[in-house]
Design a protein around this nucleic acid. Sequence first.
DNA 1: ATCCTGATTTTTTTT
DNA 2: AAATCAGGAT
Length: 794
Amino acid sequence: MSSGPSLESPPSPHEARLEGLLAGLNVPQRDAVTHGEGPLLILAGAGSGKTRVLTHRIAYLIFSGRARPHEILAITFTNKAAGEMRGRVERLLSGHTRGMWLSTFHSACARILRAHAERLGYTKQFTIYDQADARRLAKRSMEELGVDPKRYTPAAVQNRISQAKNLLLDAEDYRSLGGGHFEQIVADVYGVYERELERANAMDFDDLLLLTVKLMERHPDVRRFYADSFRHVLVDEYQDTNHAQYRLLQLLVGGGAGAPEGAEGSPGGAGERPQERPHRNLAVVGDDAQSVFGFRGADVRNILDFQKDFPDSTVVKLEQNYRSTQTILRAANALIANNRGGMPKELWSELGDGEPIQVSELDDEHAEARFVVGEVERLMSSGVPRREIAIFYRTNAMSRVIEDALVRRELAYQVIGAAKFYDRAEVKDAVAYLSLLANPRDVLSFTRIANTPRRGIGQTSLARVLAHAASLDESVWDAAAEPERVPGLTAAAVRALRSFMDTMAELRERAAGPVAVADLLGAVLSDSGYVRALEAEDTIEAEGRIENLEQLLEVAREFDASAEAGEDTLDAFLQQVALTASADQLGQPGAPPGEEDGLAGMGEDDQGVLTLMTLHNAKGTEFPHVFITGCEDGVIPHSRALEEGGLEEERRLFYVGVTRAMRELYLSSARRRAMYGTGVYGLRSRFLDEIPEELTTGSETRGRLGGGPLGALGGAGMSFRTGSAGAWQAASGGAAERRGAGAVQFRVGEDVVHGSFGEGVVTSLQGDGVIVVRFASDGSERTLLAEYANLSRG
DNA sequence: ATCCTGATTTTTTTT
DNA sequence: AAATCAGGAT
């Protein structure tokens, strides 16, 4: 209306900016973005544009003058999500995000803890132990207590400790809960475990949350500092928050159930500035139907009870879906309707019915993989770029078979989540060196690297050093630095230790100065003899390790380049590494797929690559074409989850998978699937039956055994045992592999494994069963008789 | 101290 | 099937 020349003052650039921000948003989205002060609950169904709402709300807060960048704390679930959000906010604000906190709970907590570590008896160089470290420490604590690791596995105990921490319970709290024999054992281990963490100046993932809460509870001034500083707190994926995170939010924004404001703010309270008014500017976004992290302490009640916690909260419901066809949404709605409780929501879209959902049942996981890959190729030949296709599965282990099939067809792909770069042994070793340099009390890192590479410091000597350090209550570093004082060490061990520690001391001096992390890492790798030892191995694997270390150096270089001057770069680097999750993906999407370079690395064009990931990692993503594999009872309602009564969470997980699909959805299952090396027969997932039939299409009978004469299978199909090698694999293969009777058929480019030469690839077929194989172990090419050589598919 | 071998366990999902 | 672990030989 106000366009054109007007007597009224034209909209100021400021107003225009605000208008632009709201353009294209629907009514509830707009309400959420423009909501002023006070608690806000945004119930955002799948695909309803919640990230858009979050980013626009942040921009709105700033444009409207309600907040300045440094007054905003926005929490996401993964670093990747945080990075994406930062990018989008930056675009909206044309770069004005300086000082804004946009991170995960864990990263934000680590940052806060580093600033106040001394208050909790830590130094700011504290080490962050990941789950594997935590498990090792739990194991050691159990050994110290003489707990039988057969009866109780360290993993189970660590799990319980983690749960306790998520509930903000310390060892004594946990003990006083009562519980059975196991719980008492856990309480014992928890106590020792905690003591060891403190001695090591280390924190596990859960501590980051727990200790931040503790810090703020014990030190009101610290709490007040952050509460004042973050005028607006926004939380994504609120349905996946656990109790510790919930509590932390209460401490930051005030109010809510169980918050101490009543006591503190009331006259006669703690006596410190009783007039403090909590701002309660908390905006949370979530969907109870997508709560899938219960196993790690997430509590759906946080979102379900939000209105109880904040009776005056504003609630906005986003139900219009901008992602999927109605067919997909109807399936999703029908599926989730089988869960009881939860907030009623009905997703709808304007995108029309689209294609029916394809349901397929295959013989086994190999047939399933071939089927999926075949469909992928069909899609691609009809012009669909690779990046628009995703394949989901329940467990990481399931990716392998699919990857094999993809490599065989030379399709470029990326696996999100698995292939954890930071989990590689050599990378962990290198990081452990740096950790020890930063934190001389870091026992776990010390034990990891003291004899890596081999330098004559064996288990026994190591144990003696640790015991000595413990008895004098000094750091491992100090104990090891004077090996002659350690009782019981052999002369050789003393010599080896001294030489090792001399090197470390030199490195430490370097670390103390203003040194680039990459330079320090380079010095570590050469001075420690680590790279030399790898070079001496002179194997393909060692070469790969060296390449990985090269890559780590590159990461360090990038870090150095972006680090701010005067920062404790080593500490910051270690923190980043510790908190970079596997799902955050080192190489950005679009990078050539790692893995078997060459074969899969054909993604040079602008097609991007296929994406493989677990259903858990799928949350927050969307793809035009989605495959969900392993739709079998025991896999998708996972058997372990069923035992623990987690059916509804499994259903939500499946729901998450279904709602990722924009246009086409494929659901596949296998009648028979190998687990732990032997075959297991499964039933199709009960979730498939919860999808209305009229929405689906597909043959239940697709991929029947062999397809050809029944006899082809013979007795081999019954013995679903590997070991006796490719027998049934050949027999149950699809049409492409159905050729000769009995003998295994190979194709050029196929991966094979030989009984004594190991892995190789078929380079040519000479006819009459004569094939040529190049072996990876030594690069040799050998001519073999397929029938007699001890060969099987890789 | 180190290497080798056979037994046992693993697979739920992740910050 | 793969990886980790314990025990034993060198």
